[in-house]
Design a protein around this nucleic acid. Structure first.
Lengths: 95, 95
DNA sequence: GCAATATTTAGATATTTGTCTAATTATCTA
DNA sequence: TAGATAATTAGACAAATATCTAAATATTGC
């Protein structure tokens, strides 16, 4: 789990908006792009960052590439937070 | 609550390390600095970012400035996450 | 195989950001 | 008040990054 990649990925508002759009289910790159006012190339860059952080999964469906939230990282993400802000129940480390 | 400031602040490894150092209690800028191999000026910049994100609180104690974790933002941070990765119990919005 | 569509990759550029040195501000103590 | 110590601010610079246009790759359907 690349903590740094995850935090970096979350630091951009466009990428957080992408994650938010994926909450209601998987979407193709193009469908996601409709909502944003940037080129497909820029979007693709953001997808790459999200993938590297393992925040989204991809699956090719014919001509399209379908993106979906990888909710399994949620646990890791939560763990990181609890690790950074303790005194709330947990204690473990592993930075 | 400036979501963007918070995520940006968390995106830097030095700043996360600062937060971690503060887990065991408040420390002066100098004490925190001992652990890091960067100048006081650079550290000060990181403090400014953390303050802007409301992740730390400061208090002048004589010659020193004491930093401490602001654990109240934890709730906001957690809320942001639950908001980004739903289907785990909560639903609310407010991006 | 070829044209059309979907997406990514390559390369360029402007902005942001982390770091540094030097200078400034605030506080203490002699 | 002067000197020392703690920390921040100012200004410069290099590295990282978000964006763009143009070109490349993958897939479909004729």
């Amino acid at each position: 789990m690349k903590q740094q990649e995850v935090f970096k990925a979350m630091a951009d508002p466009t990428r957080r908006a992408i994650l938010k759009r994926l909450q209601d289910g998987a979407l193709t790159a193009g469908e996601i792009g409709e909502t944003f006012d940037i080129t497909a190339a820029s979007l693709s860059h953001h997808f790459a960052v999200l993938k590297r952080a393992d925040l989204v999964r991809t699956e090719r469906r014919g001509q399209f590439i379908v993106y979906s939230l990888n909710s399994t990282v949620f646990e890791d993400l939560a763990r990181m937070l609890f690790d950074l802000f303790p005194g709330r129940g947990r204690s473990g480390d592993q930075s």
